[in-house]
Design a protein around this nucleic acid. Structure first.
Lengths: 279, 279
DNA sequence: GAAAAACTCTAAACCTACATTAGAGTTTTG
DNA sequence: CAAAACTCTAATGTAGGTTTAGAGTTTTTC
């Protein structure tokens, strides 16, 4: 029973690890077999070496790199282990926070796709209650209605870089939109005011984060930015015909955006909207 | 302003991405520059291509692989995106559960190291209140006191494999221990009863999971399995001298285990303990 | 208009923690 | 003693890039 040597295959089996992994560990000096036949180069292990292998696997499960593990095992310094673990703890927490954001973003995207499938036809006008929203916004430098998509792209770039510069999670960058002052809208002048991305409650509160109040909105659906001027006009006409009083700023919201068709145009699904009051 | 082409460096800068990543995307066909100079092979991009790049980055942020992203963008199939996202959602949840386990294990290890640093000298006898603990245990097949460390290693292997076989998180496998029946202990016979690992409240409840009740324990500290028989004897003598009544089974608990010194022996810090009553 | 600076190209190597494969040699089993 | 099972080395592949070398191109500066 004692001093029995284990072949690499046996060692692998009892430790639930692959043979090639054991060879790798030998190579990098993490776990050397206790005896190597000089002629056949066969590796032989002692069952007592399981202790070290357990340690390696445990540290690996804690997310440490093989290099770190080697370093720790060689130094035998528990202070070093501790400092690595403390660092690792931070990392794990960050990762969890990130995954949480991902989860939210994934759910929102799935919802958004569902909505897209069930959405009304292009040109449909609806009157909807829209709950309050939070947006991260920047004023537009140039009125992109005067120039076209390139300028819009630039503004969007600026917004994105502003997020990055402030270390804000970029993952929100899916549902974007623009606003226009009520006055501009009412007078039929197309003047961009702000560009924004929708964020959720978990988003850090900064100066640039604002709340758009809930309320009844008159909306019209479309699928291209190019059509915005025409559809905005229709929206205005509809409000006038029905005597709805425009109660706030106009919003162009990107509900779903999938640039899947070609490189030249954003494949979009948009909802233009103005809050109204029925006095 | 219009139709201005961007060099790869400019494109990289405005999108906060590296030049080499853009080249990689070109290579794998994920994002081809809209124009490539045939002589110089220089890549030129259009700002409108940002839409696609945004999409790529967004999907990447959702944790999708480049291959998947390419597939989705080429197919333009929102159903496909959705199914990938749903799969991804599951993955993320699993990852979070794993990270949670990691976090717990890391914290326990840090605590365990701290405890090690502040622990009493070898041979110290203490009387301590120990809160209740949960263990995952298996009966020992062989009395390893009769054979030595190899048999203990084997038993430990079996325990570990039992965990793996039942799909239980291996990360708990740090603090192990063994038990001995009260009767054996009192009569000075060394007979191993069970081998266990400590688990926490979050661990799934299976048949093999038991609770060790809280209570006052007489404990003795040591740093090698080899010394266990001697120290167990001392513990018994101490109880007898002081008229403490042994109230339950004997436990040999591994407080800290770092096989950092050599391959031949587990570097350990142990606490032998028996619950006592002061009638 | 020429030199210098800044940029870009391709191709290959490197990163982690292994997995896989080929082809040759060794040990165990029947 | 042959066949089966195992092990060896060395090289290659994986994902999503980064880094580097050496050559060529474009832009800036004087």
């Amino acid at each position: 029973m004692k001093n029995e040597l284990l072949s690499i295959g046996e060692m692998a089996k009892i430790n639930n690890i692959s043979v090639s992994t054991l060879r790798l560990y030998d190579e990098i000096g993490l776990l050397k077999p206790c005896y190597t036949d000089e002629e056949s180069r066969y590796r032989y292990y002692n069952i007592r070496q399981n202790a070290r292998l357990d340690m390696i696997q445990y540290m690996k499960a804690l997310g440490m790199e093989l290099k770190e593990i080697k370093e720790v095992l060689e130094s035998g310094d528990t202070k070093l282990i501790e400092s690595i673990l403390i660092r690792r703890k931070k990392q794990v927490k960050e990762q969890m926070a990130n995954l949480n954001l991902q989860l939210g973003a994934i759910s929102r995207t799935i919802e958004s796709l569902e909505r897209y499938r069930k959405s009304p036809n292009i040109g449909t006008i609806t009157i909807e209650y829209i709950p309050h929203r939070m947006i991260y916004s920047l004023p537009t430098n140039t009125n992109f209605y005067d120039y076209g998509i390139e300028v819009y792209e630039n503004e969007l770039r600026d917004l994105k870089n502003s997020l990055i510069k402030h270390n804000l999670p970029q993952i929100y960058y899916c549902n974007a939109g623009t606003t226009m002052k009520k006055e501009s809208f009412l007078e039929g002048r197309l003047e961009s005011d702000e560009i924004f991305v929708l964020v959720d409650e978990a988003f850090p509160r900064t100066e640039s984060v604002k709340r758009i109040e809930s309320g009844m909105y008159v909306c019209i659906y479309l699928d291209s930015f190019d059509d915005e001027p025409e559809y905005a006009k229709r929206l205005l006409e509809y409000c006038e015909e029905n005597n709805y009083k425009v109660a706030g700023d106009y919003i162009c919201e990107v509900l779903t955006e999938f640039s899947v068709f070609d490189d030249e145009k954003r494949g979009m699904f948009l909802r233009l909207q103005v809050p109204v009051s029925f006095r």
